[in-house]
């Protein structure tokens, strides 16, 4: 650990403990909002683990999230919940490995195209399996898992994701990914196994998204393919991560907190214009703050320092 990290660690711990106390203070609106914030933080941060350093835009978060949710829906009651979460993680990792091995050996365009329709493909396949097996169009997820437990599980997962991100940032793998993101040709010439590095990190990212989906499943008593594989989710995760700044581990968090609150307001006041408003907001972010809030803060600090 560096001197700076030792100074920041107590602050992080204090913030984490403060966040963990939320369910004791309120179990209505604020807890629901808290769950959304932590869910999007975990999703956006795990998205940025891969897409941040490499600049490979994944549009498939909803596919992994839905796989996790459906794993729980399909076997709930047959297997204990922690085992289901584990299986969800493995399935998410397997799906990510297939996508990664097929596309990441080639250029980034193939990867984007593949992820663009992946959630829709998963939705079609799941719907088809359900109708051919003759069951109804959705699945009941009835457990005794309450909202505070979901909140704490997600919060613990967030801590794990930050630890993973911090470890990767310090490892050879993280260094390799930063080189790939800056110039892939240079990375190949340095002797980095670019395909291998990319696939490994995409698998980590996909596995985490599936685990988050599994943890969230008990919150919805009834899971349908349309809801589990919603393309809106992939879009929201990308927006939030970019708003915060995908090139820093703590970046997505800065985007998630304001955006979840704004999203709540939009959904309450303009339920029919969600796509339009989100699309517009996204364009503003891409054009005017390409490095996100984290980039703005860093620029401000640098300017302040050079002036002093």
């Amino acid at each position: 650990m560096t001197e700076r990290e030792r100074r920041i660690l107590p602050i992080c711990l204090a913030a984490f403990i403060a966040a963990a106390l939320l369910p004791l203070a309120d179990d209505g609106y604020w807890l629901a909002l808290g769950i959304s914030v932590v869910m999007y933080t975990t999703l956006a941060t795990s998205w940025a683990l891969f897409s941040g350093p490499t600049h490979y835009i994944s549009l498939a978060t909803a596919a992994f999230f839905g796989v996790g949710m459906y794993t729980v829906g399909a076997w709930v009651g047959l297997l204990p919940f922690p085992v289901l979460v584990l299986i969800a993680g493995l399935l998410g990792a397997a799906l990510a490995a297939v996508v990664g091995l097929a596309t990441l050996r080639l250029s980034g365009v193939y990867f984007v195209i593949f992820t663009l329709g992946l959630a829709e493909l998963a939705r079609q396949v799941v719907s088809w399996v359900q109708t051919t097996m003759g069951t109804s169009s959705g699945l009941y997820v009835l457990t005794d898992i309450t909202e505070p437990i979901i909140y704490w599980s997600l919060l613990a997962l967030a801590a794990v994701i930050y630890l993973i991100g911090w470890r990767i940032g310090r490892s050879r793998l993280g260094f390799a990914l930063r080189i790939i993101g800056n110039d892939e040709v240079v990375a190949v010439h340095c002797g980095i196994g670019t395909a291998r590095a990319k696939v490994i990190l995409f698998v980590v990212s996909g596995c985490l998204a599936a685990v988050i989906g599994a943890i969230m499943a008990p919150r919805f008593a009834y899971v349908t393919p349309t809801q589990a594989f919603s393309p809106m989710l992939s879009f929201q995760v990308v927006i939030m991560a970019l708003l915060g700044g995908a090139h820093r581990l703590w970046g997505p968090l800065l985007g998630v907190i304001p955006f979840t609150i704004v999203l709540d307001l939009i959904a309450a006041n303009f339920p029919n214009q969600t796509a339009l408003l989100l699309g517009g907001a996204f364009l503003l972010i891409v054009y005017f703050i390409p490095n996100g809030v984290a980039g703005l803060i860093e620029n401000g600090l640098r300017r302040g320092r050079s002036r002093a």
């Binding site: 835009i57 990308v238 214009q273 339009l276 989100l278 699309g279 517009g280 996204f282």
Partner: peptide, 21 residues
């Protein structure tokens, strides 16, 4: 490529929003 993918992805949602409206 990255920039145009992001911009047109956002644009797609704007179009969907307009057509829904």
């Amino acid at each position: 490529e990255v920039d145009s993918i992001l911009a047109t992805f956002g644009l797609a949602f704007v179009f969907v929003g307009i057509m829904l409206a």
